[in-house]
């Protein structure tokens, strides 16, 4: 059995939101009993509806936020509480890259200073060695010496994201959680960064949780993927197989909507109905108000997760009753 670097066991996380200053507090269940595991040296992609809880799941996996219930195991042991010494020690081995590079960078420091900063803090090597290391890492992500002296505001969006990536990788972490890391990059740089991440993964045995909306990139970079909808995992399995033969009706719509340059080959499934509201979760299957194949039972009974013969897990009544159809197609 391969070792898991991270395991999420039935984690849930709610936020309280209120209407107006004195309004009633309403809980929003951002993540609802999510279980996931990431094998060492592998990439697990997390995709799904915007607002379905992917970033929250990532933050919980890092211990940046505590789950209300459920637990997070890092290399088999429970993650220590945030801001304790034990957690800080572990944190050095886990890095996160965010969606918005400008928010992740210190606007007053040059790119080189920011990338070198973790080495400075941990006093690794001499000052000139640290500089060389930081410059080499910047080179690896496609930034040159003249970018190194720039402030974040002087760089383009893609250049900023590469600076963020260089800083995350400089400490050679074991686990990298990427939240939309390449969506600000042009396709050529994206190709470089994807290749780079895959090379570093091999070389450093890096494990990656890759949160993304770009299913083309997900297909390229990940071995396994999980699809979220309104706080829950609705489908999980081998990436190529899942994208070629999506089983859950939401995944089918998602895959069909991927824009392809120069005309699409599959017909787009257009979802109708309101986007889901986490503060008023639909009964039964949360997807039923928009589901093209919903049946009466879907409005009242929440579908359990079924594991199909090819290792795919799906939570859908329509799939439950025909558990063999996937195997037949695959």
């Amino acid at each position: 059995m391969t070792e898991n670097i991270v395991e999420l066991q039935a984690i849930s996380k709610s936020y309280a939101t209120r209407r107006g200053l004195f309004g009633r507090r309403v809980p929003v269940r951002a993540v609802d009993e999510v279980s996931l595991s990431l094998a060492k040296g592998q990439t697990l992609a997390l995709v799904g509806e915007s607002g379905s809880g992917k970033s929250t799941t990532g933050r919980v996996a890092l211990g940046l936020e505590r789950a209300d219930t459920g637990c997070v195991l890092f290399r088999g042991t429970e993650l220590p509480a945030a801001d304790t010494r034990a957690w800080r020690r572990m944190r050095a081995q886990m890095q996160m890259i965010y969606q918005d590079p400008l928010a992740a960078l210190d606007r007053r420091l040059t790119v080189l200073d920011q990338v070198r900063e973790p080495l400075d803090i941990h006093e690794i090597g001499s000052a000139s060695e640290r500089n060389d290391k930081a410059l080499a890492m910047l080179g690896a992500v496609g930034l040159n010496a003249s970018h190194a002296g720039s402030l974040p505001s002087e760089l383009s969006g893609g250049q900023r994201q590469r600076a963020v990536l260089a800083r995350a990788l400089i400490m050679r972490p074991e686990l990298l959680i990427c939240d939309e890391p390449v969506s600000a990059l042009d396709v050529s740089i994206q190709a470089q960064v994807v290749n780079l991440l895959m090379d570093l993964q091999k070389e450093m045995h890096l494990s990656i949780l890759f949160i993304s909306h770009d299913l083309k990139v997900v297909r390229q970079i990940s071995q396994r993927m999980a699809v979220m909808y309104l706080g829950r995992i609705v489908e999980c399995g081998d990436t190529k197989d899942l994208l070629a033969n999506p089983a859950h009706p939401y995944t089918k719509a998602l895959v069909s909507a991927v824009p392809v340059a120069g005309g699409r080959t599959r017909e787009r499934i257009i979802l109708t109905g309101e986007p889901p509201n986490p503060a008023a979760r639909p009964t039964g299957c949360a997807f039923h108000p928009r589901c093209p194949v919903a049946r009466p039972q879907c409005a009242s009974v929440s579908p359990a997760v079924t594991t199909l013969s090819n290792g795919r897990s799906v939570a859908c009544h329509a799939v439950e009753i025909a558990p063999t159809f996937m195997g037949a197609e695959a």
Binding site: S50, Q99, A184, H213, L254, V255, A257, P259, R268, L271
Partner: peptide
């Protein structure tokens, strides 16, 4: 860029 493919299409 921050939207899933179904909402992006919408």
């Amino acid at each position: 860029t921050a939207l899933d493919a179904t909402i992006q299409a919408q």
